[in-house]
Simulated scan of single mutants.
Amino acid sequence: MSDHLILLHGLWMRGIALVMLRRRFESEGFEVDVFDYLSVAAPLERTLERLRKQLRETEGTVHVVGHSLGGLVALRACRGQDDLPPGRIVCMGSPLNGSASAQRLAEAGGAWMLGHSKELLEHGLQRWDGKREVGVIAGSKPVGLGAALGSLEGDHDGSVAVSETRLPGIRDHCVVTASHSGLIFSAEAAAQAVRFLRQGRFRHQSETVDAESVS
Rank of each mutant, 00 (worst) to 15 (best):
M1R: 14
H4T: 11
L5R: 01
H9N: 11
M13F: 11
G29W: 12
E31V: 11
F35E: 07
D36H: 14
A42I: 10
L44E: 11
R46P: 08
L48Q: 09
K53C: 10
G60R: 09
T61D: 06
V62E: 03
V64S: 04
V65T: 04
S68A: 10
A74V: 06
G80C: 09
D82A: 14
D83L: 11
L84V: 05
S99Q: 01
S99P: 05
S101A: 14
R104L: 04
A108I: 05
A111N: 02
A111Y: 05
S117T: 07
S117A: 15
E122L: 07
H123Q: 15
L125M: 14
L125Q: 03
Q126Y: 13
V134P: 02
G135D: 02
A138N: 04
A138I: 00
L145C: 05
L145Q: 12
E153D: 14
D155E: 15
D157G: 05
A161P: 00
E164V: 08
R166Q: 15
R171I: 13
D172H: 10
H180G: 07
S181T: 11
S186F: 13
A191K: 02
F196Y: 03
R198G: 03
Q199G: 06
G200Y: 03
H204P: 04
E207S: 12
T208Q: 15
V209G: 07
D210V: 04
